[in-house]
C-alpha cells in the first residue's frame, strides 16, 4: 500500500509539473528627463490660452545599459501616446480634481492631443498642447510620472513604456485664473 501511495504521489507531481510555467516579461525602464516645457505665468485671465510643449529624442537612456536606446528603431512608432493631469481645486473635496475638457478647450495646434509625433529632421518626438482657461479657479498641471507608450504596436515590433521625470525643472505647476 505504501508503494501505491508513493507512485500515486509521483504521478501527481508529474501532472503538476506538466502544468506550471513562467512567462517571460519584457519591461525595460526608459526615462525622459524634463520632457515637458511650460512657461508658467501663475496668474491668468479668464479666456487666456496656455501652451505646453513636449519634446524628447529618439535616443533615450535606459537603466542598466551602457548606450542610449533608439526607441524609433526599436518600436517603429511614429507617435507615442501619453496622458497628463490637468486639475482644478475643488472646495467640495478640498483637493485638486481632474478636469476633462472638451476638444475646443483642450487641443493641439499641430496635430492630435496626447500624442507626440516623430520628426525625422530633428529625430525627436514632439507635441504641443493648448488649454483655453474658461473657468476661474486654482489649477494644477502635473507632468510628473507621465508615461509614454506606443500602444499601436504590432507583434513584430517591441512595445516600450517610457517614463517622464522632472530633474532640472518642476513638473508640477500651479496657477490661478481670475475673471
Amino acid at each position: 500500500m505504501r508503494k501505491i501511495f508513493g507512485i500515486l504521489s509521483v504521478c501527481f507531481l508529474f501532472a503538476i509539473s506538466s502544468c506550471i510555467s513562467d512567462d517571460d516579461f519584457f519591461s525595460p525602464l526608459i526615462t525622459i528627463e524634463d520632457g515637458f516645457v511650460f512657461d508658467n505665468q501663475e496668474n491668468y485671465q479668464l479666456g487666456d490660452t496656455i501652451y505646453f510643449t513636449l519634446e524628447f529624442s529618439r535616443y533615450l537612456p535606459e537603466e542598466g545599459q551602457p548606450n542610449l536606446l533608439d526607441i524609433f528603431e526599436s518600436t517603429g512608432a511614429n507617435e507615442f501616446f501619453y496622458d497628463i493631469e490637468f486639475s482644478k481645486f475643488s472646495s467640495f473635496s478640498n483637493s485638486y480634481q481632474r478636469v476633462f475638457a472638451e476638444e475646443r478647450n483642450y487641443y493641439s495646434p499641430d496635430g492630435e492631443t496626447n500624442s507626440a509625433s516623430y520628426n525625422p529632421v530633428t529625430e525627436t518626438y514632439t507635441s504641443t498642447t493648448a488649454i483655453v482657461l474658461v473657468e476661474p479657479g486654482e489649477y494644477q498641471l502635473n507632468f510628473n510620472f507621465t508615461y509614454f507608450g506606443n500602444y499601436n504596436y504590432t507583434p513584430n515590433n517591441v512595445y516600450l513604456n517610457i517614463q517622464n521625470i522632472g530633474v532640472n525643472t518642476p513638473q508640477e505647476y500651479f496657477f490661478t485664473v481670475t475673471e
Binding site: 545599459q65 548606450n67 536606446l69 533608439d70 528603431e73 526599436s74 513584430n156
Partner: peptide, 17 residues
C-alpha cells in the same frame, strides 16, 4: 520568439524581436 537588445552600427541600443 524573443526580444534581444543589440547595438546598431551607430552605437545605439535597439530592441529587436
Amino acid at each position: 520568439d524573443g526580444i534581444s537588445r543589440e547595438t546598431t552600427a551607430a552605437g545605439f541600443g535597439v530592441y529587436r524581436r
